[in-house]
Computed example of a mutant assay.
Amino acid sequence: MAMPSPLPVRNGVGATRLRVPATGPWPTVGAFMTERFFHLDPERLLSRFDQGEIVAIDGAALTRRTPLGVHDFVWYYREPAVEMHIPFEVEILHQDADLLVVDKPHFLPTTPGGKFLQNSALIRLRNLLDNPDLAPIHRLDRATAGLLMFSVRPETRGAYQLLFERREVEKVYEAVSPLPQGWDPGSPALSGLPFPLVHRNHIEKLRGTVRVQVDPERQPNAETLVELIGFDDRVLHTLLRPHSGRMHQLRVHLAELGVGILNDVFYPDLLPEQPDDFTRPLQLLARELRFTDPLTGAPREFATKRMLQQAPQP
Score class of each variant (00 low, 15 high):
6 P>S: 05
11 N>L: 14
14 G>E: 06
18 L>K: 08
21 P>Q: 13
22 A>E: 14
22 A>P: 03
26 W>I: 07
26 W>K: 08
30 G>D: 09
39 H>R: 10
45 L>F: 07
47 S>D: 06
53 E>C: 15
54 I>E: 01
55 V>I: 12
57 I>L: 09
59 G>T: 05
63 T>E: 02
66 T>F: 03
78 R>L: 14
79 E>T: 06
87 P>I: 15
90 V>F: 14
96 D>H: 07
97 A>M: 11
98 D>H: 11
101 V>S: 15
101 V>R: 04
105 P>M: 05
106 H>A: 13
109 P>A: 15
110 T>R: 06
110 T>D: 08
110 T>Q: 08
112 P>M: 10
112 P>C: 03
114 G>S: 11
117 L>R: 10
122 L>T: 03
125 L>W: 13
126 R>G: 02
128 L>C: 15
132 P>T: 07
133 D>H: 07
145 A>C: 14
148 L>A: 13
150 F>M: 14
150 F>A: 03
151 S>M: 12
156 T>E: 10
160 Y>I: 14
164 F>G: 02
166 R>V: 15
167 R>E: 04
174 E>T: 07
174 E>P: 00
175 A>K: 14
175 A>L: 10
177 S>Y: 00
178 P>S: 06
182 G>A: 09
183 W>Q: 00
195 F>W: 01
200 R>I: 02
205 K>Y: 09
205 K>V: 05
206 L>M: 12
209 T>G: 10
211 R>D: 01
211 R>L: 06
211 R>W: 07
219 Q>H: 10
223 E>T: 10
225 L>R: 02
229 I>H: 03
230 G>N: 03
237 H>W: 08
240 L>R: 01
240 L>I: 09
245 G>F: 01
246 R>V: 05
248 H>S: 02
254 L>C: 05
256 E>S: 11
260 G>H: 02
261 I>F: 03
266 F>A: 11
269 D>G: 08
270 L>S: 08
271 L>S: 06
276 D>C: 14
277 D>N: 12
278 F>D: 01
282 L>A: 09
282 L>N: 02
285 L>A: 08
289 L>H: 05
296 T>I: 04
297 G>E: 08
298 A>N: 12
300 R>A: 15
304 T>K: 05
306 R>P: 00
306 R>L: 07
309 Q>V: 11
309 Q>N: 14
313 Q>D: 12
